[in-house]
Structures are given as structure tokens and as C-alpha cells.
């Protein structure tokens, strides 16, 4: 009799499903709310003075596990804006084809120059589309940026650090504050 019971049960389950609303979300038309910490593509950002933040230190190039970042740095020269001597990257390439989206480059960046974007879709018609050149990376600055910059992540993982060194230069930049989500910064004691 077990077989017969099971047969009717099976019919019942499929029938129940037949009249249920499908769980499908029709993707291009309907887009789900993505998680706050979603990581998609990358952007290089400028600081409040309109100057490139990247100093060409190559930390990200060294830490990248899949070695997709390649940087050409220029010797230090005077900044046209602040007049201080600092380094610049003359070329910055990030190859998304092999990128594992581990976010290590963001964590290691001392200047919060590289930030991830929150835009989910990044399709391309050819492989070249997936190689982010310096121009594309700076163009991505205008997209929705994630809150997690290097400084914000450090703050979140080790809040005491901010207390010990209240004047840490990385945490105080206005661009980082603008893109930072409220949660981690509010935890910081005043």
C-alpha cells in the first residue's frame, strides 16, 4: 500500500506546486535587492582636491593572489595641487578575467585609492572589455561605490586602532567618509 500512498502524495505535491506562484524572479525586468557588501568591479578614485589618490605604491600588485593587477609607477614629483612631493601611477591595469574578487587590493591600499563598485552587471562582448585600463577604472568612479575602502575595513575589523591613533591620515579623507556606510563609522567612539 505504501506505493499507492506515495503515488497519490507525489501527484498532490506537483498539483500543489502547479497552483503556487512561481518563485522565479524574471531577472532583466526585475532586479533583486543585492547585499550591502556586494563586490563587483573596481574603481580608482580622486580625492577632494580632484587629484588621483593612487600613489603607485604597488601594494595591490604585490598582494593580488591571481596577479591580475599591473602598475607602472612614476618617480615622485611635486603635486600640482598641494605642492607636496608624492608618487603617481602612470599606468594601472586590472584584468577582471582572472580576478577572484577577494578584495585584498582594497584592504591593502594605504590611500583608499581603489574601491569596489556595487554594480552587479559587467558583461562584455569581447575579452578586452574585461580588462580594466586606467581610464575605465577612473570612469568607474562615477558608479555606485561600495562603502568598504581600506580604511573602513580596517576600522571595522579593529576599532581600537582608530582610538590609538586618532589622527590616522587614511581614515580622515573626505572621499572615504562620503562613500563609507554609516554602520562602521558610527561605532567609532567620538
Amino acid at each position: 500500500m505504501g506505493y499507492i500512498d506515495a503515488t497519490f502524495k507525489t501527484f498532490g505535491i506537483t498539483l500543489k506546486n502547479l497552483f503556487r506562484k512561481p518563485t522565479t524572479i524574471e531577472y532583466p525586468a526585475v532586479r533583486r535587492e543585492r547585499a550591502e557588501r556586494i563586490r563587483a568591479s573596481f574603481a580608482l578614485v580622486h580625492d577632494a582636491n580632484g587629484e588621483e589618490k593612487c600613489i603607485g605604491c604597488k601594494f595591490c600588485e604585490w598582494i593580488c593572489p591571481s596577479q591580475v593587477i599591473s602598475i607602472e609607477a612614476t618617480p615622485k614629483r611635486e603635486s600640482p595641487v598641494t605642492g607636496k612631493k608624492r608618487g603617481y601611477a602612470s599606468d594601472f591595469t586590472l584584468n577582471l578575467q582572472a580576478c577572484i574578487i577577494c578584495e585584498l587590493c582594497i584592504q591593502v591600499c594605504p590611500e583608499d585609492a581603489i574601491i569596489m563598485t556595487r554594480e552587479q552587471e559587467q558583461p562584455g562582448f569581447c575579452r578586452e572589455d574585461l580588462v580594466l585600463t586606467m581610464d575605465k577604472l577612473y570612469a568607474n568612479e562615477k558608479k555606485t561605490l561600495a562603502w568598504h575602502t581600506g580604511a573602513a575595513l580596517m576600522e571595522m575589523q579593529n576599532p581600537q586602532r582608530g582610538q590609538e591613533k586618532p589622527a590616522a591620515p587614511a581614515a580622515a579623507t573626505p572621499a572615504a567618509a562620503a562613500t563609507a556606510a554609516p554602520a562602521p563609522t558610527e561605532d567609532k567612539p567620538a
Binding site: N17, L18, T23
Partner: peptide
Amino acid sequence: KFAGRMQSRM
């Protein structure tokens, strides 16, 4: 269509 709905698809 029928199969889709039975499997909660469209």
C-alpha cells in the same frame, strides 16, 4: 509551461 509551474518555475 506546465512542467515549469510544477517545479515552481515559469
